[in-house]
Design a protein around this nucleic acid. Structure first.
Lengths: 257, 257
DNA sequence: ACGTCGATCTCGAAC
DNA sequence: GTTCGAGGTCGACGT
């Protein structure tokens, strides 16, 4: 671990070398110019930025505003640091494609380095949008033989049901999708859509609530209102989308012939 | 400017609030968990990370490896910080789409904040824009005798072709330009433009894809769709632009070529 | 507000 | 290695 405040450029340079050779993450805040040449080319004139160097050979130059780095280098490049003419210069070189990024510090305000321990697990869960896409792709996720008629159908003032469709017996089906555990609120929402539909469609109507789980209160209410529940998890939808992409690609290739 | 090393969570929290209210960039290195809920949802279990908060309401969570932030929030969100139960918690909320990201620090190793001054100018060279400018300047880069009629012509719902023109035989020509190697996707894009043009122009139409190279799949599809490919690199265009500038300058100075 | 498109996109997976 | 599609893509530009 190392921390330097307003160090000389020489101090910063040697600390940088030490840190990188021992596999630490280095953060430098200071005034710098940046040049890049490779797939494209760019220059950035002097200003104060935050630069992060990682042990996997990636690098980020961040201005004080904006989500995206103004300059960067992906993992796998090699760093070279030196001081000449009152400038602490770090170049990051990458092969394939060949690209060089050079940062020239005229002033270092902060240099921090440390080996960070991160064994954390990252999990990403599907959005409700993903679930709807998966259902549209494969309505059988809800029920075998289900055919979707429209999506986001306008059911009037009650709002918009996620889907309406028709089951294998010709019944009209109204579907409401939730990404998280459903409760009383969601059952009532579905009930409103079903009631709206009853005033417009003159045949048997089923209402299906689709969610990864249904809480107690929702369960009771659901039975009273004679609605139905279909368990479907975002994870399952994620897999289905992945599968669907592959199938879609196959069809696309076969169709072209 | 503020710098805290191994501060208490309360110290970190109050420093964070001070810094954000005075428009500083804040960097926190420490052990944290991250939760996100919005378009999708994600969790990240405990580990050491670098977190950058910017004045424009953007936020980045970086692990010790990788170019991309593991979690983030784009500009425009509002931060809220608090300490409860031995946890320093920062939540970043964004409306439209509604998204919340929460970082829970169990340990802060470093907190640095400062108002950064950055008025630097960023310039990028060899973009697709540069290629288009070069082509406009000298259409013969694509084909001898080619005359451009318009650029970015509105071809309706299919989108916008980069150029339309007329070849030396009076055929209508639709042109799509790519800076990098072109594949199936780009051929399909050109095909859409050509189809749109066919509904509007009642004469022979050629479609030309301009790019530094054409990959396998794109090549096959291109032949099937009877479209054409013209190799042109960004580097060549850069040279052409440079030449054009020189010529323009000469003419401006009143000199003969 | 929404839609399209480019990006030094990056990343992963399949071939 | 090349090719290809996804992304919480982001960001810019046009309608």
């Amino acid at each position: 671990m190392k921390l330097l405040v307003n160090p000389s450029l020489d101090e910063a340079c040697s600390a940088f070398k030490d840190a990188m050779s021992s596999g630490e993450v280095v953060i430098i805040v200071g005034e710098c110019e940046v040049e890049y040449e490779g797939r494209a080319a760019s220059t950035l004139t002097s200003g104060e930025r935050v630069v992060i160097f990682k042990q996997d050979g990636s690098l980020l130059v961040h201005r004080p505003e904006g989500y995206e780095p103004v300059n960067w280098q992906p993992p796998g490049c090699s760093f070279r640091a030196s001081v000449t003419d009152e400038v602490f210069r770090v170049s990051a070189t990458r092969l394939s494609p060949y690209e060089v990024l050079t940062i020239s510090f005229s002033k270092v305000k902060l240099l921090f380095s440390e080996k960070l321990q991160d064994r954390g697990a990252f999990s990403l869960y599907a959005s409700e949008e993903d679930m709807k896409r998966a259902i549209q792709l494969n309505p059988a996720l809800i029920e075998e033989g289900l055919r979707l008629l429209t999506s986001e159908k306008d059911l009037g003032e009650a709002g918009y049901a996620d889907f309406v469709g028709e089951d294998s017996n010709g019944n009209f089906v109204v579907i409401e999708v939730k990404r998280t555990s459903a409760g009383v609120e969601e059952v009532l929402q579905l009930a409103r859509y079903v009631n709206e539909a009853k005033q417009r469609v003159n045949r048997p109507i089923r209402g299906i609530l689709v969610a990864p789980s249904l809480r107690k209160g929702g369960q009771k209410l659901l039975e009273q209102l004679k609605l139905e529940f279909k368990m479907l998890s975002p994870e399952r939808c994620r897999r289905e989308l992945k599968r669907g992409r592959d199938v879609g690609l196959m069809e696309f290739m076969g169709l072209k012939r």
